[in-house]
Amino acid sequence: MFSQFKYWKPFIGPFDPCKPIKVKSYSTPPHLYIGFQPPGMKQFSPKDALMHGTLWPQLYSPYPDPNKGVKKD
């Protein structure tokens, strides 16, 4: 399984004027990994589909990262 967010550590200079943001992130939503959607993917109920903005759980991309700050091993 792919991750929906990527984290990286930018260079921090000794004379940077602002408090450094040590970890930066960007979003890598599921469509980047699907290529061509196969038929028969699992579907949300109509109401959940509306709330998520897509009929397919596999296409759902949360924002911001719901696991932000959670350490993974």
């Binding site: 599921p30 469509h31 709330m51 903005g53 897509t54 296409l59 991309s61 924002y63």
Partner: peptide
């Protein structure tokens, strides 16, 4: 806004 963002994901696909 999250709904609209998700729609962009689907359109891109």
């Amino acid at each position: 806004l999250r709904f609209l963002r998700e729609r962009e994901v689907v359109h891109s696909l």
